[in-house]
């Protein structure tokens, strides 16, 4: 087996900067790594006594794959002198959309799930990031496609990402949503984060959340990143990794 799980720890003034630096070093897109926030850092008072943010990036590619991807990205960047987004022609964008739609349709058909599939491009706020393909699945009774703790939708998204990446020869992040589930869930998670943070502040006791997949844990970490009184940590191993909300010292 050439597969390897590698990690990289980065320290920077803010979590966002740390993640960005790490991705720059690796030459990988955001979606290719799992981001774990080890320390959100703090600004301190008047710039005094602040702690730096610490993140750990886990990237799940074999070394050769990572090297290949880095080379691809570099080639795109240096060959055109422009970020990858603008390096894509309309034809290429069109092709990735069609291909992604087709892959998801093929998978669903073979899973005996009848649904409507459409895809669109989501331009990232940061032009340095690659544009994401958003896939929308609509139909009746699709709870089977979400699964316990989003297990099925995440598996479908993961496999689709691999197939599309392999087919196009470059990494194109694909995000799959079923009946607006992800958007709803994210709103729910944010509200829950604040509710539980409030409880932690009132009782002084840490709150341990139910186990969640990485993307959901990230939503909680980000939501409470700037909270003045509490901090968040992830504890345990996947698939039982849980977010804990606790008082800042």
């Amino acid at each position: 087996m050439t597969e390897e799980k590698s990690t990289l720890e980065i320290i920077a003034p803010t979590v966002e900067e740390a993640v960005e630096r790490g991705l720059d070093q690796l030459g990988l897109p955001r979606d290719a790594v799992d981001v774990e926030i080890l320390d959100t850092g703090s600004r301190g008072v008047f710039g005094l006594g602040g702690r730096q943010a610490r993140v750990r990036l886990t990237f799940g590619f074999s070394k050769t794959e990572a090297a290949e991807m880095r080379r691809d990205v570099e080639e795109e960047l240096f060959a055109t002198g422009a970020p990858p987004k603008t390096a894509l022609t309309l034809d290429e964008e069109d092709r990735s959309l069609k291909l992604t739609t087709m892959v998801v349709r093929d998978l669903l058909e073979r899973m005996k799930v009848r649904a409507k599939v459409s895809a669109s491009y989501l331009q990232p706020a940061d032009p340095k990031e690659a544009p994401t393909v958003m896939v929308d699945i609509q139909g009746n009774d699709l709870s089977i496609l979400i699964g316990r703790r989003s297990e099925t939708i995440n598996a479908l998204q993961y496999i689709t990402n691999l197939i599309v990446g392999k087919e196009l020869g470059r990494w194109v992040p694909v995000l799959i949503d079923v009946q607006g589930y992800r958007t709803r869930r994210e709103r729910q998670l944010r509200a829950m984060a604040h509710r539980l943070a409030e409880q932690v502040v009132q009782t002084g006791r840490p709150q341990v959340l139910e186990p969640m997949p990485a993307n959901e844990r990230r939503t909680i970490h980000l939501e409470l990143r700037d909270h003045p009184l509490v901090k968040t940590e992830s504890v345990g191993e996947d698939p039982n990794r849980k977010v804990t909300i606790l008082l800042k010292k």
Binding site: M1, E3, F61, K112, E151, T152, L156, I159
Partner: peptide, 26 residues
């Protein structure tokens, strides 16, 4: 082998999850 198994079996696990849905349909 590495491509269908994945790091810590991630690809294999995802295939099994999707297979479970396909099987449940029948």
């Amino acid at each position: 082998m590495g491509r269908v198994i994945g790091k810590s079996g991630k690809v294999a696990t995802a295939m099994r999850v999707l297979l479970r849905v396909a099987a449940a349909r029948e």
